[in-house]
Amino acid sequence: MHKYLKKTLVISVFILTAIALYENFLLVPEYTGLRTGVSDYIISSGLSDTGSLNLITAVLYDYRAFDSLGESTVIFGAVSGIVLILSRKMLPVSSRGLSFIVKRTFGLVTPFIALFSLYVITHGHLSPGGGFQGGVILAVISIIFSIVYGSAFDYRRYSPQVKTAMETMGAFTFLGLGVVGILMEGFFLKNLGFLTARTGTLISAGSIPYVNFGVGIKVGAGLAIIFYSMIQKTFKEDF
């Protein structure tokens, strides 16, 4: 009797969830073609609304900024879960790294990679790119450090506490700009109109460059934390 009750409960929950999902998908507006509907509105008046030349960034961080907040929450959840499961011991375990030539060459190349990632982050509203892509390039610098100099180098320079603080700072930048949007414009994560300047200049598109910067720092630090918690017990201690 008790077993059947449990089974009927589970099956009814499944059926109710299916009905709720079906009703939810019915609410999605129909596909109205490329030339009409929302896409036409964004293409025709996105530049005057947001001041961002790159319409994809305008959609990501102005029209659909709440979805971007959800995406960065997903990344935060993934980082928390991986760190919780994988890093039992936070001791640095290191290899010796590659040869002298590779170390010197990478030391020369690193500032340019960092400059490129900062370019991609700060020019997100002018050219292709944005916070997410530039943040991943920042994380790639940290990964190449661990391959070239041995995995303890980056750990000793920038400890996981520093990376966690950077990720938290990026998240607070995003959320703080959302709260400022409530105070100044009346809606959560609305673009700040008083910050817009002449179109095409570096700091022009309202709050979009600042949101890009926050997302870039958050994504870079989070992905570096994921990589380091995966690599920690990989190598033997050599020196």
């Binding site: 790159n54 960034t57 997410f132 390039i137 790639v140 994921i226 990589f227 995966m230």
Partner: peptide, 24 residues
């Protein structure tokens, strides 16, 4: 935009993470 994201994530980051998983 999608090309930049695919190059950075698909060719860079996921390869590194797969490599670390394989070595482990």
């Amino acid at each position: 935009d999608v090309a930049l994201a695919e190059a950075v994530i698909g060719a860079g980051l996921s390869t590194a993470i797969f490599m670390s998983a394989i070595s482990q």
